[in-house]
């Protein structure tokens, strides 16, 4: 059960919504009263919403160049419309379906593998009783987040290069044939996903840890009094306590399913593994090099948005039913 479902305020709203036969005037009056009651909240919203209007919605207005042949001298409004031409350039790419498949595979792998690992790590850190050790682990695991992918390539070559990499040296010592991990279509995806997990898991535990700290210690004490084991306490208190964050992150990740860490792929991939490594963003980047990429890049951005919107709506209604959690 959600921890908010029982609050009186929510119950009141649900009841109000359940009565559609209330006369309009009364509903308006009720709304006005509710709005007045929340006047301080609206005051708080002024600055952030102004920000959103200017810095998020004006660019979205400018994004009409996706449907236009953009001319700098004529500006956004003055440029001629060309319809879906830029979208077609993307859809007609010989590699369109492959790009989508690769992108989704990386996205899902990150979600399905990366997230549980981060949650387990967060739980382990949370449960450890050795304060110094656990802060050490916490600090050290989040450090790789700061390594840029260029440095990561250096590290990976040191490990995986067929001519001098550490792992390949071990394989050779054991009598095996060296494996070209970074240029082999059979291994490239694993390298991408695992290196991302290595780099980002520690950093993503921060959120889960903060969520775990938000759980009232009283709940644990009560469970201890009841004689629940450590494992049961994790299962019945810790996990439910971070479900809201898990659902939230999952939904948001699904919304951005067509966005994969561009930097990573750009640095790691090479021609022999294009078929398993090329993603939408790298394609846009390579296409964009060619000329004034503005409209094409914007069109692809909008396309990704549409897909994300559909996914997030579906996932949201699933989450609402299954976990009693939703974004809105």
């Amino acid at each position: 059960m959600s921890q908010y479902a029982g609050t009186p305020a929510v119950a009141r709203v649900r009841r109000a919504r359940a009565k559609p036969d209330v006369p309009l005037a009364m509903r308006v009056q009720r709304l006005a009263r509710a709005m007045w009651k929340h006047r301080w909240y609206y005051l708080l919203l002024i600055a952030p919403l102004t920000y959103y209007l200017i810095f998020r919605y004006i660019p979205i207005w400018n994004a009409q160049i996706a449907f236009k042949d953009f001319f700098a001298l004529k500006g956004v409004e003055g440029s001629p419309w060309v319809g879906l031409q830029h979208f077609e350039a993307f859809f007609n790419s010989f590699y369109f379906s492959e790009l989508i498949v690769n992108t989704v595979i990386f996205s899902l792998a990150r979600l399905i593998l990366g997230m549980p690992i981060a949650i387990i790590l967060a739980l382990a850190i949370h449960e450890s009783r050795f304060l110094f050790f656990r802060s050490l682990v916490q600090t050290v695991t989040y450090l790789p987040h700061f390594l840029s992918w260029v440095i990561m390539l250096g590290l990976l070559l040191g490990l995986l290069s067929p001519s001098s990499g550490m792992i390949n040296e071990m394989i050779k010592a054991a009598g095996g044939q060296p494996i070209a991990f970074l240029t082999s279509t059979a291994w490239f995806r694993q390298v991408v996903v695992l290196s991302d997990i290595w780099k980002e898991t520690g950093w993503s535990t921060i959120l889960y840890l903060a969520a775990l700290l938000g759980i009232s210690p009283d709940l644990y004490e009560a469970a201890e009094v009841d004689g629940a084991s450590r494992w049961r306490r994790i299962w019945h208190i810790s996990l439910p306590g971070i479900v809201p964050v898990i659902v939230l992150i999952t939904l948001l990740r699904l919304g951005n399913i067509l966005d994969v860490s561009f930097q990573q792929i750009w640095v790691l991939y090479s021609v022999p593994v294009y078929s398993v490594g090329d993603i939408i963003d790298t394609w846009v980047y390579r296409s964009g090099v060619l000329d004034f990429q503005f409209s094409l890049a914007t069109a692809v951005g909008l396309f990704k948005g549409v897909i994300g919107l559909i996914l997030i709506l579906v996932a949201n209604s699933v989450a609402k039913r299954v976990a009693q959690q939703s974004l809105f």
Partner: peptide, 13 residues
């Protein structure tokens, strides 16, 4: 959320 889903790219910004 709408603005989160639609990345409009460099030039509009």
């Amino acid at each position: 959320l709408f603005t989160f889903l639609f990345h409009v790219g460099l030039i509009p910004v």
